[in-house]
Design a binder for these strands. Structure first.
Lengths: 219, 219
DNA sequence: CGTAGCTTATCGATCGATCGATCAGTAATC
DNA sequence: GATTACTGATCGATCGATCGATAAGCTACG
């Protein structure tokens, strides 16, 4: 009766979190069973409870760590320059590296926070809001200086973030474009979105006045 | 022993589908139990199986009907004009009306097709691909005519679609902007994305060559 | 008109499988 | 011998699905 060798077989804690990320990303939190996680790591379900007290503690840890890294990188990026253009460039790079560097984790963070209990969800959403505020501030400051010209800061921020998040769905490391090329392409698209001072092509947009911080956050 | 009045009480079939849409959208297909659907409609689980043979048949019907409507509206929109600009305007309006008009259904269609079996998923994805091809064709034709100037058609199409899909997350019917205003704002953003013939603001984008149909489809 | 016989729409009860979680026990290491 | 890392067995709850039964409406016939 061989049992798995105990003690320092490997770092079970990280392997459990990685397995959880992969399964949560492909099947969703609710549809992922603790038995699947245990099987993937090579443990029993009982052993999982040595590392985490509940299933949703696994989800919480994934989100806290991931969003913490994203927020820290974002703050570092905006601190690197006072030029809103450079800040947006930095944020784009940070976001795309985050989304494409570990798409599964990014997808879990994007889609699964509804399963956290109220208290945990609030703290996670606070992290996300703080990160999104970095974008809003950069866009707003660019507008104030006349560098960017957007009709609606919130709508533009949402469009930019949603655009980048799409990368978590279609990006493949062995795809036809390198991550560097994708970042450059997104820079072009982002700055096209932010510079609306060119002559309008069509429709002078009569009713759409300039509103700031209008659209609600998801969930 | 009162039982619910039978026959023509109301259209149970549609009420079941509506309940399924709402629950699938907020909790996800996998996490939605047939008992929840039955409770919402005011029936028993047994009665559900009078209308659908399996749980995933409900999902399939929601997707087939929804994507069928979207594709039909899209084809109608592109047929209305030969001008790529007008086609894009029409597609934007169709897509945003679809996304904002019934956000729950749009979210189900966007996110839950992984739960269909292989055969059904293929047929549903074929519908979605046909719809996305309408966008790709309009963008490509606009580029051919020199009206649009984009570096990468696929990337631009993905960015535009992802941007619009974001509306399913933050749009509220009683929000600060009317749907018409949002459509106009998205037109501005979309045409800004498509017209890259203005002088580049920063970074001449050295490595990013012009590639067509590169990025893979999701899933 | 009346009613027999079929169809439609629903029920209560229940199936085996799987869910997240618990607990007492144990081998290996310190 | 204390601590760490893990197991096998098992709990009650819930899952999707199936069963036979049945009340209510419909149709055809006498």
């Amino acid at each position: 009766m061989e049992r798995a060798p105990t003690r320092k077989r490997e770092n079970s804690e990280q392997r459990i979190l990685d397995a959880a990320i992969s399964l949560f990303a492909t099947r969703g939190y609710a549809a992922t069973g603790i038995r699947q996680i245990a099987d993937k790591v090579g443990l029993t379900t009982a052993s999982l409870y040595y590392y985490a007290q509940t299933k949703d503690e696994l989800l919480l840890r994934v989100m806290r760590v991931g969003l913490g890294e994203l927020l820290a990188s974002g703050e570092e990026a905006v601190a690197a320059s006072t030029d809103p253009r450079e800040q947006i460039r930095g944020l784009l790079k940070v976001h795309l590296n985050f989304a494409a560097g570990n798409p599964e984790r990014a997808r879990v963070i994007d889609n699964e926070f509804q399963w956290l209990d109220d208290e945990d969800r609030e703290s996670v959403i606070a992290l996300r809001d703080a990160y999104e505020q970095l974008w809003a501030d950069a866009i707003t400051e660019g507008c104030r200086r006349g560098i960017f010209l957007v009709k609606n800061v919130s709508l533009t921020r949402l469009a930019l973030l949603e655009m980048c998040n799409g990368a978590t769905h279609w990006y493949r490391a062995n795809g036809p474009m390198s991550l560097e090329q994708i970042v450059l392409a997104f820079e072009d698209m982002a700055f096209a979105l932010l510079r609306t001072d060119e002559p309008l092509t069509v429709a002078p947009a009569p009713g759409a006045g300039l509103t700031v911080e209008t659209a609600q956050s998801p969930q």
